[in-house]
Simulated scan of single mutants.
Amino acid sequence: MGWFTETAVRIRAGRTPTRGNPDGVEDWSPGAVDRLALSGLNVQPRVQAESTDDDRNAVITGLRVQSDEGVDLDVTARDRIEWRGEVYQVDGDVARWPDPVVGGVHHVEFNLKRVTG
């Protein structure tokens, strides 16, 4: 069994035009989003933290995602990722590492974050 066996779904907001913005605003409603299956992934834990105060007990879960060699992914920093039934936000920029031998993308790496509580 290899390292890149995980699958996920990229969720990208649709655009809904408004009177003041013809280019539209992000629309995360189920009928407006674009969903794309992603495969050949390695997903690893990155961080887990808990913060408490008088009003809230928040848990932050972070993951690191890497694509297999030679696999580019249609993912941006504005997307969300559904993995194992949970929805995460892309946390920071998406890194596309170049292949120094043949050119193009060698692999893609990005972080995910989910806050609950």
Rank of each mutant, 00 (worst) to 15 (best):
T61D: 01
N21F: 15
V43W: 07
V90D: 02
D91K: 05
A13T: 10
P98A: 10
T61Q: 02
R56Y: 02
P22E: 15
G104D: 13
E86C: 00
P98F: 08
G14K: 11
R114E: 02
P22M: 10
R80V: 01
R35C: 12
G40T: 00
A95V: 11
P17F: 13
A77K: 11
D55Q: 07
G20V: 08
F4H: 06
H107S: 08
D68R: 00
D34V: 13
T18W: 09
G20K: 08
R78W: 06
S29L: 14
L73R: 01
R96M: 11
R80S: 00
R15N: 13
R64K: 04
A95N: 15
R64A: 03
E109A: 07
L38E: 01
L63Y: 05
I60R: 07
N42I: 05
H107D: 03
V90M: 09
D23V: 15
R35W: 13
R10E: 10
D55F: 07
L41H: 04
L36A: 04
G62P: 06
D68Q: 04
A58K: 06
R64C: 00
T18I: 12
Q66A: 09
V90Y: 08
H106M: 07
D91R: 03
A32G: 11
Q48L: 12
K113Q: 11
S67K: 01
R96D: 05
V90K: 03
E26Y: 15
V101R: 03
T52N: 07
G2H: 04
P17M: 14
G62E: 06
L36Q: 10
I11F: 10
W83M: 00
L112V: 00
R96Y: 11
A95C: 12
G62Q: 06
G2I: 01
V25A: 07
V47R: 10
T116C: 03
Q66V: 02
W28S: 01
R96H: 13
V65C: 03
D72E: 08
D53N: 12
P98D: 07
E6D: 11
R84T: 06
T5H: 05
L112W: 03
D23A: 15
N57S: 07
G20R: 07
P45F: 13
R10S: 09
R12A: 08
Q48M: 13
G92E: 03
G70P: 10
I11L: 09
A32M: 14
T116N: 04
P17H: 13
N21L: 09
W28N: 04
T5Y: 09
R46D: 05
E50K: 08
V115Q: 08
W28C: 10
